[in-house]
Amino acid sequence: MTLPILNNTPTPPAPQGMPWLRLAFRPFYLGAALLAALIVPLWVAVFLGALQWQPAPQPLLWHAHEMLFGFAVAVIVGFLMTAGKSWTGLQTPRGPALGALFLLWLSARVASLVAPYAVFAVLDLALLPIIGLIFLRLLIQSRNWRNVPLALILLLLTLVNLSFHLAVNGQIELDPMRSLYAALGFVVIIECVMAGRVVPFFTTSALPNLKIITLPWLDHTALAATVLGMALWVTGWHSGLAAGALGMAFALNLVRQLRWHPLAILGRPILWILHAAHLWLILGLGLLALAQLGLVTTSLGVHALGVGATGGLILGMMTRTARGHTGRPLAADAPEMAIYVLIMLAAVLRVLLPWLVPSLYLSSLVASAAAWSAAFLIYLWQYTPWLVSARPDGKDG
């Protein structure tokens, strides 16, 4: 007589709640992609005079602010609130709580278009401190001290955003663009930290025979030079020192990336997009250094960091993490290939072409906006069904 084999392994509970509110990357990636696809063409139409419209702040400040505190912050929130669960083993906001946080972000974006400035400012200032404190509590509770600086950056971004709104309203004597430069600086610092962690890790995971030996002193020195260079640039204290620090950051980050064997991953798009975007970060630092010496415009460095580095890294991470957390293969299909090519094309058209052929500035601006928007529209077309539905393997997340 054969006895049945009993399986005493408990069956995990079935996932609860609406799938798109189970982890923060789902609503915030969708919101960020939709915002990115819409506001860049809107800004170009306003800039060229094709559309007569006045947002809450003046158009240039609105454009820069929404790219940073609307688009980039949404991705940062979605990523950190998702990664935070893995890093700490603790539950991050989900369900109605996550929905409320997303609606707060969304309401600020709508308010920037149609509401009185005071309403926009209040809504816009509310999200980051809430997220920063939630994230900080998770890290402290789990004793995950390594990532505490990321939580502090979220809280510092709140102060930067506050200084922007106060400056726009004339309540403090500060050029609002300085606040936006500071926000870009913090975004670049986050990118520098996260790229140093994920790019070599993802590369060796995909290519086990490839050995990447990270040098902590090099990572720390590159980050320190980047922080110093961005701080000197933002404050405008001494252009010569800023140029030197940014030049050092350029060189150290370049050496660091060369140690990641970027040529070994050319056949893997889901990897090369991260390497390519990091190259734009390096180029942006170099262009800002040249700008301090009056050799190029500051706009070239800002857009190398904003379009090439931030746009490229965000789409690289939004595709990879969304695939991983929805239970799909970590490989790029045709839509991802199109997304990666378009975002890199957008950067070339916005930075390199106007630099080399200034007479083509307006044409390149329009073409860059079209490529940028198309990249995020393709992301929405490919990923929206995945982000709003349950994982095919039945797991939570």
Rank of each mutant, 00 (worst) to 15 (best):
L42M: 06
F47A: 15
L48S: 11
L51G: 09
P55F: 05
A56D: 13
H63R: 10
A64S: 14
A64M: 11
H65F: 06
E66P: 08
L68R: 07
G70A: 00
F71S: 00
V73S: 15
A74R: 01
V75Y: 11
I76Y: 04
V77I: 11
F79K: 10
F79I: 14
L80Y: 03
L80G: 00
M81H: 07
T82W: 09
A83L: 12
T88F: 00
T88C: 07
L90T: 10
Q91P: 09
G95R: 04
G95F: 04
A97F: 09
S107V: 06
R109A: 00
A111T: 01
A111Y: 03
L113C: 00
V122K: 10
V122H: 12
L125D: 12
A126L: 11
L127D: 00
I131F: 05
G132L: 00
G132S: 01
I134E: 05
L136G: 01
R137N: 13
R137M: 11
R137G: 07
L139W: 00
Q141E: 15
Q141M: 13
S142W: 02
R143C: 15
N144A: 10
N144F: 08
W145R: 12
W145C: 03
W145M: 10
R146L: 15
N147Q: 13
P149Y: 06
A151V: 00
L152N: 06
I153D: 02
L155N: 00
L156D: 14
L159I: 07
S163A: 13
S163N: 11
F164P: 00
F164K: 02
H165S: 03
